[in-house]
C-alpha cells in the first residue's frame, strides 16, 4: 500500500498558486529527496502532506486514509515532521523536548506513563542523544538540536517522517551524520522518509528517488541518474551545470559551471 497518494493536488496562498496539479505516490519504506529552487513549493508540499495546509483541490491520502478528514491527533500518529527552523522558549531540557513527541498519545487523565518514558529512551538511543539527557535544549549546538528534534519526531512512532531541509544549518560532518541516521531508520525500521534537500550532491548520495519541483509543479521524478541531468537542472534552477558520476560510487554529482566572464577573471587571477 502507498504511504502517500496525492492526486491532482493544488494549493494556493492568497497571493498566488503554489502547488499545481501535484501527483505523487510514495510506497511504504521509500526514501524520497525533494529538490528544487527556493520558492518551488517544497515546504508547501510538506505542509500539505502533514495536514498543516489543506489542499484546495485534489486528494491527499496517507496510508489509504483521507488526510483532510483525519483529526489532528490521528494525523500526528501517521506523520511526524522535522521543521527547518526550530526554537523553543523557556529552559526545556532535552528529554522534555523529546517527550513532546508523545503528545498525540496523551489524554487528560493519562498524560505521563512508563510507556512514554520507555519510548523516548529508545528513540534517544537510536538517534544517539541519550548522553544529552539533563542538558538544556537551548545550550546545544545546531547539530545536537537537530538530532533532538529528530528524536522527538521519532517518538511519535509514525510510519512516515517528513523533513524540511534538515541539514540546512549544519556543517558537513553533521549533515552526513543526519543523513546516515535517516538512511539507517529507513533501512532498518522501514520508515518512509520524504526530505526536502538543499544540497543536490548529498541528495544524490543518500536518496534513491529524487523529486524535482519548479514553480509548484513536479518536473522530474525518479532515480538521481534520471533527475539530475544538466538539462533538468538548467531548466529548474536556471544555472548551467556539469553532471559527472561520482568517481567512487557512480551516483551523479553536480558541478557548477561559472559564467564565461567569471571563469575568465579567475584564469587571469591564477596566471598573475
Amino acid at each position: 500500500m502507498s504511504a502517500i497518494e496525492m492526486k491532482r493536488v493544488c494549493f494556493s496562498y492568497s497571493n498566488g498558486l503554489v502547488l499545481r496539479d501535484v501527483e505523487l505516490s510514495v510506497r511504504k519504506g521509500e526514501m524520497v529527496g525533494l529538490i528544487g529552487p527556493n520558492g518551488a513549493g517544497k515546504t508547501t508540499l510538506i505542509r500539505v502532506i502533514s495536514g498543516i495546509l489543506n489542499a484546495r483541490q485534489g486528494e491527499v491520502k496517507l496510508d489509504g486514509l483521507d488526510a483532510g478528514r483525519l483529526k489532528r491527533n490521528a494525523l500526528a500518529r501517521e506523520v511526524a515532521v522535522v521543521p527547518q527552523q526550530f526554537n523553543i522558549p523557556f529552559a526545556y531540557k532535552v528529554e522534555e523536548v523529546v517527550m513532546l513527541g508523545r503528545t498525540p498519545f496523551m489524554k487528560p487523565f493519562r498524560d505521563s506513563s512508563e510507556m512514554d518514558r520507555g519510548v523516548i529512551m529508545q528513540t534517544m538511543d537510536r538517534v544517539g542523544v541519550r548522553q544529552l539527557v539533563g542538558r538544556y535544549f537551548g545550550e546545544l549546538s545546531g547539530g545536537e538540536r537537530q538530532k533532538v528534534v529528530l528524536a522527538m519526531a521519532l517518538a511519535q512512532e509514525t510510519g512516515l517522517l517528513l523533513l524540511d531541509e534538515p541539514t540546512a544549518h549544519l556543517d558537513i560532518s553533521h549533515q552526513v551524520e543526519m543523513l546516515e541516521l535517516l538512511a539507517e531508520m529507513n533501512a532498518k525500521r522501514g520508515l518512509t522518509i520524504i526530505s526536502a534537500m538543499h544540497d543536490l550532491n548529498l541528495a544524490s548520495a543518500y536518496f534513491r528517488r529524487l523529486v524535482l519541483m519548479k514553480e509548484g509543479a513536479i518536473v522530474a521524478d525518479g532515480p538521481p541518474e534520471r533527475v539530475l541531468t544538466s538539462s533538468t537542472i538548467a531548466a529548474a534552477y536556471s544555472v548551467s551545470v556539469h553532471i559527472q558520476p561520482h568517481p567512487l560510487t557512480g551516483v551523479p554529482q553536480v558541478v557548477v559551471l561559472p559564467s564565461t566572464a567569471a571563469a575568465e577573471r579567475l584564469r587571469h587571477h591564477s596566471v598573475a
Binding site: 498543516i52 500526528a76 513532546l100 503528545t103
Partner: peptide
C-alpha cells in the same frame, strides 16, 4: 491541569503544536 500537556506542545510554536496532534 487536565489539558496542560497540550499547553506544553505550544512551546513548539503553533505549527509545531499541530505536528504533535494539538488542534491549535
Amino acid at each position: 491541569r487536565l489539558w496542560s500537556f497540550r499547553l506544553n506542545a505550544f512551546a513548539l510554536g503553533e505549527e509545531g503544536a499541530a505536528h504533535v496532534g494539538v488542534e491549535v
